[in-house]
Design a protein around this nucleic acid. Structure first.
Length: 416
RNA sequence: CGGGGUGUCGUAUACCGGUAGUACGCUUGCUUUGGGAGCAAGUAGACCCAGUUCGAUUCUGGGCACCCCGACCA
């Protein structure tokens, strides 16, 4: 992608009404646009990052047997009445009406519709277990949207639902999914700071596991045992829980964190009222044992920015970066440099290396500052200086290191 | 939803009961060119509705929007 063609522009200053680091940097670098409080559009670079995160999640969900679907955002209140959630969740619903006057809801989660849907496909123990997931827009009427893209009113969530015969069978998948989540956060570059955290189960169950990324701008307080890698959410931080997890209060460190994912047992909370049952080996009807597993790719994106950005701008890990390589020409008005950079851009493309190419006719300072802000991991600079050495400069955004690489070796160097 | 705050060119800011200024951006020209360069000439602005006033961007009231703290958060 030639930067001269990219419709988004960087900004020197953040909008005055954005305080969250993630929003300030993502807006300045042209990744997102604020539509209104808690509602953001994703622009070309932002969408690429979002898609990369989605891709990681999709791969890991497929690897544990997930089957992808897309359910609807418009929801039938009748279904929600069966689980008694149409009214109980009223404060979070965005609701609307058909022209006939019938109430509709905009989905804020999908237990009800998916459970109801599965009754058409699950009837025998032979049909289980099954794992179904989607990336879908959720609408939540949060009383207060905040923290940029960390808490939005409209956002995409990956939600997976497991359908198992028994609690024991459910538990096996639950642990598999926890391991998959670990991989997802590792690949997203925040693995080191993300803890599986013992938490309350909200209205669904006694407990759940949240994945909490330690970060100053987090909303949650957790207690971490660094040696054992055990973390407990403040909401369930009791002597009883400490004893159960085999850790002592004095070894726990208080930290603030961002909840980037959670997994929890649903039991038969939804299968019973919605009639999702199967016949066991003896022909006896049994309710399906369910679990729920969520990650918001947008929130992961914001968290990466919060955790990894430095004073110059965003720092993307390789797998989520909008482009792996940022080619920057510093022409100083020299057409030969521009031509050499064009040639290198073509070479990279021929070798399947997706590149953001800053071919704009600007001074070096502006281009380099923009590159810092945008945060692509590898930067290649072509200038009079590098040409005189018959090489290009390859820089690392994260640690600031630079090496000169002969142009004939560049592809080999990048594929290392 | 309770409390607090803020609305001025595209962005960030200043001042003011009477002519709204600056920087960046953008346009044109010249110079410059490895860390947001210089000169010159342009471009563009008071959230909305009332009220007070000779006159309101400024004061008052209402609305709307946004931000922060709290509560809430499958």
């Amino acid at each position: 992608m030639r930067q001269s063609e990219l419709f988004t522009k960087t900004r020197r200053e953040a909008p005055k009404d954005e305080v969250a680091k993630n929003a300030q940097l993502l807006i300045r670098a042209g990744y997102i646009h604020k539509e209104m409080a808690g509602v953001y559009s994703f622009l070309p670079l932002g969408l690429r990052v979002f898609n990369n995160i989605e891709h990681i999640i999709r791969e890991e969900m497929n690897a544990i047997g997930g089957q992808e679907v897309v359910l609807t955002a418009l929801q039938d209140p009748n279904l929600w009445s069966k689980t008694d959630r149409w009214r109980s969740a009223a404060d979070i619903w965005f609701t609307t009406k058909l022209s006939s006057g019938v109430d509709l809801g905009l989905a804020f989660t999908h237990e009800e519709p998916l459970t109801a849907l599965m009754t058409e496909h699950i009837s025998s123990y032979k049909d289980l277990p099954k794992y179904v997931y989607q990336f879908q827009t959720k609408f939540r009427n949060e009383l207060r949207a905040k923290s940029g893209i960390l808490r939005m009113r409209e956002f995409v969530m990956k939600d997976l639902y497991s359908f198992s015969r028994t609690e024991a069978e459910f538990r096996i998948f639950y642990e598999k999914c926890a391991a998959a989540y670990k991989k997802i956060f590792d690949r997203s570059g925040v693995g080191e700071k993300t803890f599986r955290t013992f938490s309350s189960g909200g209205s669904f169950s006694k407990f759940s596991d949240e994945f909490q990324t330690v970060c100053e701008s987090g909303e949650d307080t957790i207690y971490v045992h660094e040696g054992k890698g055990i973390a407990i959410n403040k909401e369930v931080y009791t002597d009883e829980v400490l004893a159960e997890l085999g850790v002592a209060r004095e070894d726990m460190k208080e930290m603030t964190a961002i909840e980037v994912g959670n997994i929890f047992p649903l039991g038969t909370r939804f299968s019973e009222p919605l009639g999702l049952v199967y016949k066991d080996e003896k022909g006896v009807s049994q309710p399906v044992y369910m679990g729920s597993y969520g990650i918001g790719p947008g929130r992961v994106m914001g968290t990466i920015v919060e955790v990894l950005a430095d004073t110059k701008g965003i720092v993307w890990p390789k797998e989520v970066a909008p482009y792996p390589v940022h080619l920057v020409s510093i022409t100083s008005g020299n057409k030969d440099v521009a031509m050499a950079a064009d040639t290198l851009y073509d070479l990279l493309a021929e070798n399947g290396i997706e590149t953001l190419y800053d071919d704009r006719d600007l001074r070096a300072g502006e281009k380099l500052n923009d590159a810092d802000l945008i945060g692509i991991p590898t930067r290649i600079i072509v200038s009079e200086k590098t040409m005189s050495e018959g090489a290009v400069e390859v820089g690392n955004r994260a640690d600031g290191s630079k090496v000169m690489v002969r142009e004939s070796n560049i592809i080999e160097h990048l594929s290392e």
